[in-house]
Design a protein around this nucleic acid. Sequence first.
DNA 1: CGCTACATTGACAGCGTTCAAGGTAAGTGG
DNA 2: CCACTTACCTTGAACGCTGTCAATGTAGCG
Lengths: 235, 235
Amino acid sequence: MSTVFMPMHMRPTAGRIAYNDSILFNEMTPSELDRLDTCAMEVKYDAGEYLFRQNAKSDNVFNVISGTLAVERISSNGHKQIVCFLFPGDFFGITDADHYDVVVRCLTKTQLYKFSRKRLYSLAEVTPHLKSNIQQISARIFSRVMDQLFILGQKKAHERLCFLFVQLLERMPGARPDHIELYMSRQDIADYLGLTIETISRSLAKLKKENLIAFPTLNHLQILDLQRISEMAET
Amino acid sequence: MSTVFMPMHMRPTAGRIAYNDSILFNEMTPSELDRLDTCAMEVKYDAGEYLFRQNAKSDNVFNVISGTLAVERISSNGHKQIVCFLFPGDFFGITDADHYDVVVRCLTKTQLYKFSRKRLYSLAEVTPHLKSNIQQISARIFSRVMDQLFILGQKKAHERLCFLFVQLLERMPGARPDHIELYMSRQDIADYLGLTIETISRSLAKLKKENLIAFPTLNHLQILDLQRISEMAET
DNA sequence: CGCTACATTGACAGCGTTCAAGGTAAGTGG
DNA sequence: CCACTTACCTTGAACGCTGTCAATGTAGCG
């Protein structure tokens, strides 16, 4: 029996991952999952560690079990753009390029499944469900990058923050409007939204003063008026 | 004999498309090209026309023969972000999503090959070269979007313009430092770079005053100091 | 010539950055 | 338990880039 790909309800991680998990495994039979198992292993990282070094060959696909990560692009002159955050259930490394042009940093302790990309893709060739699942994930990633492109090109600071909030709500397992845990620092948020840390602070203050959000603690965000936050986030 | 996919040097369009053409056809045999022909047709549009309507099913893949196009994303409240420009040889529609979330507008008279996406993809399944070519194109498109994400998040107005210039040089067939024809309006440039038309005008004026660029006519750009322009464009 | 569409320039306001100071929370060691 | 350190966040003031509004300039076309 597969250890890594036991049915979710039988696995030790069961219940930990609330949703957007296992898109990769949708509709797959136990025997297919067993074969998927052969190209995967479980890996762990501490906060601050990187999954691979800059310009590494894109040999692996990662699936987040637990933890939060940041996909980063850093220019020669030191500017950093965070491309996206990764949450439990998310994938990284589904690409047709042979080298990563980004690095991936763990914001917290992190557990992942690590797949051999080559073997995963070969398996997909003979496993229609797997292939279609990979395509679906790929489409989602692209669509998300397009959203961010739009945000960076068109939105003001406080609107960008609202966009982030809505994204966190939708993508972080267990997030509720009255309880969103920010695992990323203010600097990370700034690097994600193309702003400075001071602007983030000030915009948060503005939204607080307007009673749209609250911060019981520094990293515990509450959305008080989801309606208006969503409107401002709109892409 | 295939009409659409005759070897380049025998076709009426030969010589028109200078480079980045035909990545799709790399390494393919004449008989494979003949089969590719069966899922393609040639289509023409006038300046200002759209290839399809918003939220259309993504049934087709387009390959630009001649002309310049803009891939646009428009929000409900009227903001427009141009995602990329398309030049001869470029592709659009290589996606795993089943609907386009953008529209494509012709900036000039345009000729394209229009492929049935479904048939193109099926053919790719049995034609390794074709499949690998499609993956290569797909990787390039993604990489380009990432470049723009970085630009929009990190760069100042005049640097964004330099980025555009370098891109035009690299991607527009026939473009030389002393002769770059701008087929897009100042407004299009603004929508591409996430700025206003006035900022574009002023930043162009600034670059002109510093003798980095010149404009013999409104839409004929010359790059006088490619070295420095490239440095500022750097991603 | 005059119309129209597009581009440039100017003045001004506002948003976001920069630089600097101050505040807060968690951890350390006396 | 409390000073001290450290890392991170917030706030303030001044500056500058970009947006906005308005006027002017320019090229193409009937």
